Amino acid sequence: SSRTRFTDYQLRVLQDFFDTNAYPKDDEIEQLSTVLNLPTRVIVVWFQNARQKARK
């Protein structure tokens, strides 16, 4: 499976959201998916990875 290449804009939006809320609800994931034009699955994985990094 090929890795998703995020744009600077997508990363900024995801990071800004994460800084406020590391555990987005389903409807928030749907909204991010629509706004960023990314599959919900990709967003879910991004947040999982971001939470892992934040824990270190």
Score class of each variant (00 low, 15 high):
N21A: 07
S1N: 07
K53G: 13
Q15D: 10
P39S: 10
T4Y: 15
L11H: 06
V13P: 00
Q15V: 09
T4C: 03
V35S: 13
N49R: 04
L36K: 01
V42A: 09
D26Q: 11
T4S: 12
D19G: 11
L38E: 04
T4I: 12
P24V: 02
R51S: 08
L11R: 05
Y23K: 14
L11I: 11
E28V: 04
T7K: 03
V44H: 11
R5F: 15
L14N: 00
F17L: 09
Q15A: 11
Q48F: 02
K56D: 10
V35M: 13
N49W: 04
R41T: 13
S2E: 15
I43V: 09
R5A: 15
T7F: 01
L38S: 05
T4Q: 05
L36E: 00
Y23S: 13
D26W: 11
L32D: 02
P39D: 14
D16Y: 03
L11M: 10
I29Q: 03
S2F: 06
S2V: 11
V44R: 09
L32I: 08
V35D: 06
Q52R: 03
R41W: 04
A50I: 03
A50W: 04
Y23V: 11
V13Y: 14
P39H: 14
A22F: 06
R3W: 15
E30A: 14
K25S: 11
A50N: 11
R55G: 11
P24R: 02
K56Q: 07
Q52S: 05
R5V: 14
V42E: 15
D26Y: 06
N37K: 13
S2L: 08
N21I: 07
I29V: 07
S1W: 00
T7Y: 02
V13A: 12
K25D: 07
L32F: 06
V35K: 15
V13H: 15
L32W: 03
T40A: 10
E28M: 02
R55K: 15
V42T: 13
Q48W: 05
R55H: 15
E30T: 11
T4R: 02
V44W: 05
S2N: 14
T34I: 05
D19Y: 07
T7I: 04
P39N: 08
I43M: 03
Q10G: 01
D26K: 14
L36H: 01
L32M: 11
S2D: 15
E28K: 12
F47I: 13
V44F: 10
Q10V: 02
D16E: 12
F6L: 08
N21D: 08
L32S: 00
V45R: 04
F18A: 09
Q52M: 04
A22E: 11
L38C: 12
E30G: 13
Q48M: 05
T7E: 14
W46K: 00
I29H: 02
T7Q: 05
F17Q: 13
L14E: 00
R3E: 15
T4H: 14
